[in-house]
Nucleic acid binder design. Structure first.
Lengths: 220, 220
DNA sequence: CAAGAACCGTACCGTACGGTACTTTAGGAG
DNA sequence: CTCCTAAAGTACCGTACGGTACGGTTCTTG
């Protein structure tokens, strides 16, 4: 399954995303991700990746071109797992939808706070000053893009069923995102300890959705 | 004026923050910041800093210890300028306070979107995987901390004057932050173009404050 | 079984960077 | 004028990393 949208034919969808990865290559990317998660970018040298995955440097360069290609492949690879993150939505009733929103909020927080997500975001942000780096756009497309598309979908459905009222679904989603995430993501990216930033997933998720309904809910 | 709070006597407030910097040293830090802004961390080598500021590497190491010390000094130095960022608050009337909040929102957005802020945040985030790096905490204290303290102050004042109603000022500030910033900061950090992320400072600021009042405003 | 491809492990190369040492120049104090 | 300190400029050192080359080994294919 190809997660990356076909929105931009040029640029991002270079070599890396098109072809399917062999199981061996996936193994390598997996252990590279593990290296990245504990150790950050400086720990992610080609030599370490090769030794950690029992693979030769020559193969790395053959498969991924160069180090940047490898990083891009890691992004795309991780992104291809995001799809099923949030469970199927339930718009059966107003109550069911609200519960689903709370699950969505909880899930969003736990994804953003995940080690791999943080490591990849740090990597992409670290490279973002380089205009030529494709990592930022890749991450936006693979991560945020997928979730946003899904959210816009169920928000529109909810509006049709008259659970919510708003003008623009995309814009409304950004408000929802703000209410849920606040500055937690950046603080985690900066290295603040998880327990300090997110003391209570459940409570935060419920508060956020309650406030979201205060802004966009339909009065009964 | 010492911006850094005395909250944590150990750790952050090492050598770097205590003593005042000589004008020469400030010049050097300034040109180092300029280097960082266009070029990112990879462009920030000791040799380049030295040559850009007509200063010897030996002096760099004498003044700042090592490269990390220099980076920390850059953070602290930039942080020491944040103080006057947001103008004086005006709680004269409910209307005046609401206007002030809108100014605050606008100012917050423009600070976060600033080149130097983005560059320093990228730097700190890039190092955050290293547990020993003081940059993240430094940035949190110098940047977010200062603004948050100020915001908590005027929120409490507003509650006393019965402009707003809430339980916990700090928590409420985080909601306000979420409504104003949403995911804009991270997207900018990831390299998304500024015009795309923030199409209209003024409108976004007003919308955010309007919604904030919907949640915490006192009915007339 | 034989021939070839894929790939591992390792050794190697060039470069760039952090950090140090040394020489020279400028200013300030007695 | 002389001495001393600070700092600029440059040269230098060790290391670590990206990238390449090569010999040996396993696996596939006919």
């Amino acid at each position: 399954m190809q997660i990356v949208s076909i929105s931009e034919p040029q640029g991002v969808s270079d070599l890396v995303l098109n072809e399917d990865l062999t199981p061996r290559q996936q193994e390598v990317l997996e252990s590279a991700l593990a290296l990245l998660v504990d150790g950050g970018e400086k720990a992610l040298t080609t030599a370490k990746i090769a030794s950690a995955s029992n693979c030769s440097k020559e193969s790395l360069y053959k498969w991924f071109g160069d180090r940047d290609g490898l990083l891009s492949a890691m992004m795309a690879f991780q992104g291809s797992k995001v799809g099923a993150a949030v469970g199927q939505e339930d718009l059966g009733s107003a109550k069911a939808f609200k519960d689903y929103l709370i699950r969505f909020a909880r899930e969003l927080l736990s994804v953003l706070a995940g080690d791999t997500s943080l490591a990849l975001n740090r990597l992409a942000i670290g490279q973002a000053s380089n205009d030529a780096s494709p990592l930022g756009p890749l991450l936006i497309e693979n991560g945020r893009g997928v979730i946003e598309a899904k959210a816009v979908g169920f928000l529109n459905s909810a509006a049709e069923k008259n659970y919510l009222r708003f003008d623009d679904a995309r814009q409304t989603y950004h408000i929802l995102y703000g209410l849920i995430v606040r500055d937690a993501h950046v603080r985690l990216l900066l290295g603040e300890r998880r327990e300090l930033v997110m003391k209570n997933f459940e409570r935060d998720a419920q508060t956020a959705i309650a406030q979201f309904y205060q802004l966009y809910g339909v009065e009964e």
